[in-house]
């Protein structure tokens, strides 16, 4: 193990390390802690210029209550859910199929198609922006959740295909051959042999795509406009102009907007990191 395990060092060294950990962590998360403190301050602290002293009262319920009951925030949050969940399902459906095709079969053009998916995944969004917006307008899907979902599914399929294909490649191939010898049809192999083995990959991708889509801002601004369809990342700017300079409310709003992926991460940490670090080890 590198660096040398701390247990092998002197007692003083160990104590220093243990003491240093929380200090470094607080410094690392300082901007975030600042926002969290802002979000529970009462309005009067800001008018009195008490930005960094001890909050004069603990206004957690008041501030967060305002976010939930006196703004469009719940609508934006709901939009985000209604955009993110179908995208996750659609992407996983499409990419488990493409991943299966590219991972199991040998045919001409296999690598070419695989690399097309990877390459498309790296392009700058701006090269797609004008045509995708035009396409969405022409399909009468501008400013709808469906328009956003369709694009997200298509784009994320690139990354997910890469992931699924590599995962399927690592599965024991004799299993599939044995099924074939038994006369199992190819689509049944997909459904009953490969898919059950892919559960960890499906879980990893689901959390990852959830986070990516929830946090998307660019496409939300390009393809939607108003509280009918906009997700929370775009809605937060409208929220902030509503409460201009009311830092306690804006902070509370941002924390609410950021929370769902954070919860997802802490609940599904193992899968999340497995997805993110795909390929980081051989």
């Amino acid at each position: 193990m590198f660096p040398t395990p701390i247990e092998k060092k002197s007692r003083g060294y160990q104590m220093t390390y243990q003491g240093l950990l929380p200090v470094v962590l607080i410094m690392w998360l300082l901007p975030l802690i600042a926002v969290a403190v802002f979000s529970i301050r009462p309005d009067s602290d800001f008018t009195n210029g008490n930005y960094w002293g001890i909050p004069s009262s603990f206004n957690f319920l008041e501030n967060y209550g305002k976010v939930f009951f006196e703004s469009d925030m719940p609508r934006y949050l709901l939009n985000s859910v209604l955009i993110t969940v179908p995208t996750v399902l659609g992407t996983i459906a499409l990419s488990s199929m493409t991943g299966f095709a590219l991972g199991v079969y040998k045919f001409k053009g296999n690598l070419l198609i695989f690399f097309m998916f990877i390459a498309g995944n790296f392009v700058p969004f701006q090269i797609l922006m004008v045509p995708v917006r035009d396409l969405t307008v022409n399909m009468n899907l501008y400013d709808t959740k469906t328009g956003l979902i369709l694009f997200h599914i298509a784009f994320q399929t690139g990354f997910c295909t890469l992931f699924m294909r590599n995962f399927i490649r690592a599965l024991p191939f004799p299993l599939i051959e044995a099924a074939r010898v038994e006369g199992v049809r190819e689509w049944q192999i997909f459904l009953y042999v490969v898919l059950p083995l892919m559960k960890p990959a499906l879980a990893a991708l689901a959390v990852l795509i959830f986070t990516f889509i929830w946090n998307d801002y660019f496409w939300a601004v390009v393809l939607t406009q108003g509280p009918d369809a906009q997700p929370v990342t775009a809605g937060i700017t409208a929220f902030n102009s509503q409460y201009r300079a009311a830092y306690h409310l804006m902070s509370a709003g941002s924390i609410v907007a950021a929370l769902p992926p954070v919860l997802m991460f802490f609940l599904m940490q193992k899968h999340f990191i497995a997805g993110l670090t795909l390929g980081a080890v051989k």
Partner: peptide, 29 residues
């Protein structure tokens, strides 16, 4: 021809979506 045809059946929806929303827009741009 099951083994030759199946991969294409599985690829068609993914490729169609990806081509429509990612590959073609590059050239349109």
């Amino acid at each position: 021809n099951e083994i030759a045809i199946t991969p294409w059946l599985f690829l068609i929806p993914g490729i169609a979506f990806f081509a429509l929303y990612v590959i073609m827009p590059i050239f349109q741009s």
